[in-house]
Structures are given as structure tokens and as C-alpha cells.
Nucleic acid binder design. Structure first.
Length: 240
DNA sequence: TAGGCCATCTGGTCCT
DNA sequence: AGGACCAGATGGCCTA
């Protein structure tokens, strides 16, 4: 079992490195080498459509969810959301087709209430996903990667992976601080604060949070992302 | 054009 | 019974 390589930028393309350079100074300085590299790999590219443009920001939590589905492109799944009472529900028909004749999933419900029940379930699910996305936005807001408009929003998986790594990094830094304080309190006469772990406050070896997790290198992008196998990455869990 | 990412719909399962 | 959660399917948008 060997850990993923500590996020050598070699795993990143030139574009990713360019993005790395474009990270805001604070974020760049605050992050360990590996974390930054991961950030560069995760913050994908330049100007992507805004959430609003993609209709993703729409109703939000608590909103009563006006029956206006996120304005996705016409013909998209949203069209079939049933929120538009106008044309016959495409998704509903699809579903019936899929289920085949006699495949009434909702028991003996009459079609009309069955349909309205489905709509309310859909709306609830949509709201739930919006809440989830809001939470992810909140997470993105506190992860130091690059919040500049020239850098694309982190994907969901990237957000989660970076957040995890960031937490690990912070924990490591905190640990270093504690050791430093303990060392200073003991007086300078002692050799090293912790025999087994020499104080190297900002050395990569000490700060880099990924080396601890010795696991298989991810065959896919996870390695390029964070250098650490992730429970969120299916490739990391595929096989030993 | 392929691949990545995403929103939405949907049916199933579990919980209250 | 109804709601929350989950995962699969589908299709659109965007970038390399």
C-alpha cells in the first residue's frame, strides 16, 4: 500500500499550473504545496456559465418553490419536471412506458392524485438538492482555493475533496503549533520538541496532510486532484 | 466530438 | 402515510 504521490504538479496539466499561479496570494501562501496543487487541479478552468445562467441558483431553500423549474435548456429534463402543467408530462409518459403495462407503482392511486403526489415528491426532491447545493456553496466559500471570477467554480466532488484535505491540513498545522508552544514553554535547552517529529513548522513533510493516508494510488483523477485516495472517489474504492 | 459536470425525474428503502 | 435519503437514468451545457 503506497500513498498517492504527494500531489506533484506533474500530475497537472499546464493549464492547471497556470490556474495554480492565478490563485490569490493569501490562498496560495496559506496552503501547503499539495493542497494548492490539488486546488489547481480541481478548480476547473476559466469562465464557466454562472449558476444563475444555468438556472441552478433558483428557488433555494425555504422558497416555496414556485412551479418554475430551474430554467434549464428547453427539452432538458426540467421540461419533463411536470412543473409545467401545460403539455402532457413527458417524464410521466416515459416512466409509464418504462414500467410497461400494468406496472402501476403507486398502488391503487388514481392517476390524478398519483400524478400530483409525484409532482410534490419531485418538488421536494428538487428542494432537497437545492439545499444540498447551497451547503456546497457555503463550503466553497470557506475553502481557500481561488474565488476570483476568472477561476471556475469547484465541482462538487472537488469541493468535498479539497475540504477534506484542507481540514487535514489545518489539523496538522494546529498540531505543529501545539508542539511549538510546548517546545517554547520547555525552554530552548532541549534539543527538539518532539524527538520523533522534529519541528518543521512549514516544511512540506510536516504540513502536508496526505502522506498519512497510506493507501493505493488512485488510478484515475483522484491522484491528480489530491494525491490521496478518497472515499468519495469510486476509483479509490474499486479494488485493492 | 468525447468527456465532465450538472439538474432533474424516478423508484426504492428507511424512518418517524 | 408521508418525508428524507439514495442511486440510477436521462439529457443539456461546456470545454478540450
Amino acid at each position: 500500500m503506497s500513498a498517492c504521490p504527494p500531489s506533484e504538479p506533474s500530475g497537472l496539466g499546464g493549464a492547471a499550473m497556470a490556474e495554480l499561479k492565478s490563485l490569490s496570494g493569501d490562498a496560495y501562501l496559506a496552503l501547503s504545496h499539495g493542497y494548492v496543487a490539488a486546488a489547481a487541479g480541481l478548480a476547473y478552468g476559466a469562465a464557466r456559465g454562472t449558476e444563475a445562467a444555468r438556472g441552478y441558483g433558483a428557488p433555494g431553500p425555504g422558497s416555496d418553490l414556485p412551479e418554475a423549474p430551474a430554467p434549464r435548456a428547453p427539452g432538458a429534463a426540467a421540461e419533463s419536471s411536470g412543473e409545467q402543467s401545460g403539455d402532457e408530462d413527458y417524464a410521466f409518459e416515459q416512466r409509464r412506458r418504462r414500467r410497461g403495462p400494468g406496472g402501476a407503482a403507486d398502488g391503487r392511486r388514481r392517476p390524478r392524485e398519483q400524478r400530483s403526489l409525484r409532482l410534490s415528491i419531485n418538488a421536494r426532491e428538487r428542494r432537497r438538492m437545492h439545499d444540498l447545493n447551497d451547503a456546497l456553496d457555503g463550503l466553497r466559500a470557506v475553502i481557500p482555493y481561488a474565488h476570483s471570477p476568472s477561476v471556475r467554480k469547484l465541482s462538487k466532488i472537488a469541493t468535498l475533496l479539497l475540504a477534506k484535505n484542507y481540514i487535514l491540513m489545518q489539523a496538522q498545522a494546529l498540531d505543529e503549533m501545539r508542539r511549538l508552544v510546548a517546545y517554547l514553554n520547555q525552554g530552548p535547552g532541549l534539543a527538539t520538541p518532539v524527538a520523533a517529529a522534529p519541528l518543521t513548522p512549514f516544511a512540506q513533510a510536516a504540513v502536508y496532510p496526505f502522506s498519512a493516508s497510506a493507501a493505493l494510488p488512485c488510478p484515475d483523477k483522484c491522484a491528480a486532484f489530491s494525491g490521496t485516495p478518497s472515499a468519495l472517489c469510486k476509483h479509490c474504492n474499486e479494488k485493492p
